[in-house]
Design a binder for these strands. Structure first.
Length: 113
DNA sequence: TATCCCCGGCGTCATGTGAA
DNA sequence: TTCACATGACGCCGGGGATA
């Protein structure tokens, strides 16, 4: 089973502290190989043809859902990575602010003396 | 080396949701 | 209301580390 390419580059998830705007890929313009477009319902007659049509529809649905599930997992993973990056950024900011506060307190104490 | 356990990825089904 | 798509839940499978 082939893998689809990533829609978002690493740069877009860079730890800037901002939430990235996810780029959703445009839907494929052509059906994958092996998928046969169903004949129009009016051209079906025998029970066998109906059964084949039903099978074709089911396979098409399964294939689309397979792809959708992959894409969904990819996006979820990307989202989690983004959150982890944001956590790291905020932790750094917090550390910096605490140090800054400490420095200001020291300064204030020395001036007060 | 064999076995166990955990984890991540996958396919499928059921269901929610928005658009036509 | 119907349809297509997105996503949560579930079970299965294979890889890799830990242990006897």
């Amino acid at each position: 089973m082939q893998k689809t390419g990533m829609a978002v580059t690493g740069d877009e998830i860079a730890a800037t502290g901002d939430m990235p705007t996810y780029q959703i890929r445009a839907p494929p313009t052509a059906l994958p190989q092996g998928v046969v477009v169903a004949a129009s319902p009016g051209s079906l007659h025998s029970p066998q043809q109906l059964a084949e049509e039903a099978t074709r529809k089911r396979e098409l649905r399964l294939m689309k859902n397979r792809e959708a599930a992959r894409e969904c997992r990819r996006k979820k993973k990307e989202y989690v990575t983004c959150l982890e990056n944001r956590v790291a950024v905020l932790e750094n900011q917090n550390k910096t602010l605490i140090e800054e506060l400490k420095a200001l307190k020291d300064l204030y104490c020395h001036k007060a003396e």
